[in-house]
Design a protein around this nucleic acid. Structure first.
Lengths: 340, 340
DNA sequence: ACTGGCACTCGGTTCAGCTGAGTGCCAAGG
DNA sequence: CCTTGGCACTCAGCTGAACCGAGTGCCAGT
């Protein structure tokens, strides 16, 4: 049904439309890309492509624009992910290498991604449930107030306050600290919950209330956070660089950016950094975001993703470049995280 | 020059314009507010007000809109900060009370402020330079990698990695940990830098390289962060609820929200929670933000502000309500922080 | 199978004319 | 002296007609 030339035409339409954001007609198409055929022929091909649902006319006397299905075909079959220039790669690594802690890595990544793709960037913090306990610290702030600090293998640091009604014994705390670390260090947070339960039993009954309070708080920290995923967003100003219909649809996007739960759904399941997920227009689960696409991928180790990062932009974005940038950033972040 | 009635007229104009976002004319004004005089009289007053620069006409045959000076006068003399309803107050405290750590307090505050004011909310993290050292923890992650954790009196936790070329001695670390805490606990970060320098001398020359590395990193943490202030932003979607000229000027605002340095300048110096800073239109230091106003105030203890929070919105915002909300949120956050 | 030609469609633009909200000014009245 | 009703004037925005031109579909010819 669709011979090679028709696909060439589709590719040309997508590329043109992405560049100009204006419906493209048969004449301009042959002018701009050298297709070696006449406008009339292109028109016939266009009619066929429209028949198949890959392109559409906004109104009778206008050119064609790609449909979501058109973009889909383009992404799947008609384009190759663009690789970054060595200069860009170098810029990425050196920018990321300057990060001073995990928070900083994430902040820099968001910024970087937004800048390179000129879209809205979203980076999920490395999830706790895939990471393991590196260290647990119990600090007495005042005689009745303790601070728990949990440091994970990904460098994430969680803190919790525990209040007590009686003064706590410093020796007991030291004891607890060492036992907690012995019992939990190196364990996955998901597994650690079971080991944690056993710790209470090691202590004298008189000390158990305090120990139990701490254990409970730790338990909450381990599990609670799994649901309440943290996310960083950046580059919202990029939504305004289209003199476009899209610009009028900025509201739902901005609203989505405020709702981290929605963003998590948009990003979807983390995949390994080799695999790029692209959701085009209404392929994403939200009605209001029918004119936006998402390009996402996992990051973390080569084999297993810790979390997801990606960008959100108009359906008429430059997929090859954007996909290249997302993939590259994901790889370099993975690398940085592996090193530290 | 400006008798009471003229001021009443100005007040009416501001209130009307804020409500409708349309230039207000003499007739509609007497209809809507019962001023007890005829449109003709109001016209004379308007002419006077325009003469004085408080209002202006977008074009000859249109009504008047307030100038920045008009809003200024309104805020300073013609309005009283609106207090929140008991229900709202209760909602604020209960929402903030659910916070689990400092990060969470800040996140919740931003969200809250954005929701109540329906504007873009900005909250600066409690600044390090006004807070003091509560605890310093040195953790060995691997034999050659140390993690420094600094806990401040405001509950903020900073982490830094220190790499060593040789394996470090666990005993030395313990020693260092206790000395650091003895020397620094309770001190302001700004003062702590001097005490910190003295710590190195307590150690044997052989140990000094390691100690110096840690001290240097701590020093950086103390001072570096003073410049690189952290900020949380929320409610950007509220920028889109004006069917307005303002909506077309969203770009510079979104851009400003990305640049934390700019936001810090916008918020300005922290004041105590009693004092509200209002910057109207071009009163703020950025040319591109001439159609936006900022309402900000400090928060922290009663007497001394730790940091600033506030909102950014169109010059034609509802100042009395907004100011009330900002002040209330600042007070309750201060309270929560004081308790924890 | 491709191409040139041709009639047709229709969104966007331009222009004139109209409308009406709003103004400034003036003269009359309290 | 302040207020008010009246009146002429201004001008942004709307409306409708005319026009333009990019783009289409179809058909006959090569």
């Amino acid at each position: 049904m669709l011979d090679d030339r028709k696909l060439d035409v589709l590719r040309a339409i997508v590329e043109d439309y992405v560049a100009t954001h204006e419906p493209v007609g048969s004449k301009t198409l042959v002018d701009r890309h050298n297709l070696g055929v006449s406008p009339a022929t292109v028109r016939n091909d266009m009619a066929a492509l429209e028949e198949e649902g890959y392109i559409t006319q906004p109104h009778t006397s206008a050119g064609r624009i790609p449909t979501d299905a058109g973009y889909r075909l383009f992404v799947d079959k008609l384009s190759t992910v663009k690789t970054l220039s060595p200069a860009e790669k170098k810029a990425i690594t050196s920018f990321l290498a300057g990060a001073v802690d995990l928070d900083d890595v994430v902040r820099r990544t968001v910024r970087l991604l937004a800048q390179i793709t000129r879209q809205v960037a979203i980076v999920q913090y490395p999830s706790l449930n895939r990471s393991s306990v590196r260290h647990i610290e119990v600090v007495t702030m005042t005689p009745r107030r303790l601070l728990l600090v949990l440091i994970t293998s990904t460098g994430r640091v969680e803190q919790r306050i525990v209040e007590q009604t009686n003064d706590v014994d410093e020796q007991l705390i030291a004891d607890l600290r060492s036992r907690l670390n012995t019992a939990l260090a190196g364990q996955r947070l998901t597994e650690a919950t079971t080991s944690l339960a056993a710790v209470t039993d090691l202590f004298a009954p008189a000390d158990r209330p305090l120990v139990a309070a701490i254990v409970t708080t730790l338990l909450e920290t381990f599990t609670d956070e799994v649901g309440e995923q943290r996310i960083a967003v950046g580059g919202a100003a990029n939504l305004t660089r289209y003199g476009d219909d899209f610009e009028r649809n900025v509201k739902p996007v901005l609203e989505a950016l405020e709702e981290h739960v929605i963003l998590l759904k948009l990003l979807g399941e983390a995949t390994n950094p080799q695999t790029l997920t692209v959701r085009i227009g209404h392929e994403n689960p939200f009605e209001e975001l029918a004119t936006t696409s998402v390009v996402a991928t996992g990051y973390g180790s080569k084999s297993e993703a810790l979390a997801t990062l990606g960008i959100v932009g108009p359906t008429h974005m430059d997929y090859p470049s954007t996909m290249g940038a997302v993939r590259a950033v994901a790889r370099y972040v993975s690398q940085i995280l592996a090193d530290s």
